[in-house]
Design a protein around this nucleic acid. Sequence first.
DNA 1: AGGTATTACATA
DNA 2: ATGTAATACCTA
Length: 720
Amino acid sequence: MSSDDKQPGGPGDGPEQLALIRETVRKAKVPRAKPRTWRGAALAKELPVARVMVDKGVLHLDRLWDYAVPEELDAAAQPGVRVRVRFGAGSHQVREGRREGGGLVDGYLVERRAESDYTGPLAALAHVVSPEPVLGPELLALARAVADRYAGSLADVLQLAIPPRNGQAEAAASPAPLPAPAAPGPGTWSRYGRGPAFLDALARGAAPRAVWTALPGPHWPEELARAVAAALASGRGALVVVPDGRRAARVDEALTALLGPGRHALLTAESGPRRRYEQWLAVRRGSVRAVVGTRAAMFAPVRDVGLVALWDDGDGSHSDDNAPFPHVREVLELRAAHEGCAFLLGATGCTVEAAQLVESGWAEPIVADRARVRAAAPLVRTVGDHDLARDGAARAARLPSVAWEVAREGLRSGPVLVQVPRRGYVPRLACDRCRTPARCRRCAGPLEAHEVHELCCAWCGEAEREWHCTECGAFGLRATVVGARRTAEELGRAFPEVPVRTSGRDQVLDAVPGRPALVVATPGAEPVAEGGYAAALLLDGWAMLGRPDLRAGEEALRRWLAASALVRGQDEGGRVVVVAESTLRPVQALVRWDPVGHALAELAERAELGFPPVSRMAEAVGTPQAVASFLQSVRLPPEAEVLGPVPVPPQARPRGRAEGAPAPGAGREPAEERWDRVLLRVPPGSGAALAAALKAAQAARMARGATDPVRVRVDPPSIG
DNA sequence: AGGTATTACATA
DNA sequence: ATGTAATACCTA
């Protein structure tokens, strides 16, 4: 720091006292100094101080730093540009006339000022990387809010928000913006009670917020496009975020059909880095006012944004898998609040979080009346275990006779969808009789068949020699799920006269024609059928419900609704068969086509149990010692609860660098190391305090140079 | 003393 | 994180 350190203290002067004096002197007696550089280089005449966001993700460096603006960079060093600066200890040390240490790091120039609060000599900006101002005040404020919400650093969020630079894309000029289009008609929005009013408000320049429970069927991309058009008509911009490239392509198509080309940008990971940056720049420069894209597009710097919208917030792709793991819904909520724009969350299903937005009064519901829902949704039948038990033929063929009949009937008039859970997504072994998942007696992990006769726990490895079902006492086990491929083969033999197509992880079909065919798909990979499917079979539903996860029911319902929404309405003879117990809440919600009712019931239950989203949770994961020391140092708000720590089974560990092993040569295998997880829970309203506390504790740990890391995550995706 | 491992500290 | 200065530690 300064030479004060070397002054001998008077008698009794402890180091704390010295530090105190130093601080006092600095605060009280040293006025704001004009910036000086070490070698007194010529500075910009106006606003010679640049506040810089240094691109280091480290939490305790998460603040702005002041640099001097040399005269020759004065013109280029505008707020928002990318810069390079010297940063790091020793970078300002002058020894034998040469700078030592401290490398050049990237950063963003956030602001120009006349003076600095820092009294020491300022380093000068090293370069302005390009004159393109990529970090505007809105994006900065949003990124700051997201970092705070998720106990992360601004640099981490900006890494998600600003695409890497591409010189060629930057050099090319963006086209001139088009004038605002006329307000669109309501189109199929008129099927929803408050739909047209929402569009009107958008077109008038207001900022309505809504949770929209979409009717099943193919209209949602066009409906989103109309909402975008309404926002554009008000002279503002608009943003739509969807879970994947397929659905982005459908909204893209709808927007082009409604508005013509050149009015919107498509921001997905599928276009290469160059194209992506080009599109992003066109948005930032205001030459394009509307955006549709996937996750990263949530930060797109739309000029004067009037509407942020997202589709299917329950889809896991909306949760970013890079630190600090922000969720699109939460980011867009923050954005709506910060930028005072409209908010539209649409889905065929309804997440608990969406229901809460309505319950709290933050958003209004947009729903169709029951009669319309009934007509647009297919007729759903269930096949439970009791039906199956009476159905000998079905047991043998794995396909209940009801499903058989519905498929045969449906194939007369069009394609039939068969949804099969993904292998590996569900418990491996289950009771032969009642299908309760087979679990380890010691740790409740899933059992798997190891050798011919040996059963082992997949988590703790404990052998199980005398398994019997804890629910019904049976001794038989069965492999739980038959994959899509084998299902397709079986169905192909059963219906030799129709083609069988599959759509799954490795080979996803976008669409199939309206001719009779069997289409076997895993959840999320269902193709759209021209004119809608005649019927759908949702197989092995019990397996989707059997997952040991708080969201298992919600998730199963979401996937059933998504598949069923591709089926014709019951007024056109659309039929669905779900193989699951009809007494279960998600199954009933599917039969009644009542996603909102299901979400409200779940919400009430979560409130009672103190689970998210009613309370807010965060997790900290690391070695037991690391977690313990983290807990000791963290200064939680008084209303916070600590749940755990408990050991984390290997399968449930967060992905990422396997760290924490001692120095090489110690012979410890990281795989053998135990990890603990602790959950921290706060009531509504204390989320910000929790995040701040976690961030402070993490920063202190890092500053101390703690060896084994603790991974902190706000809103963990699964809390077991 | 003189050198090396370890820790503390600051980053403009 | 990362580099430097301060220090603790070790050998002759």
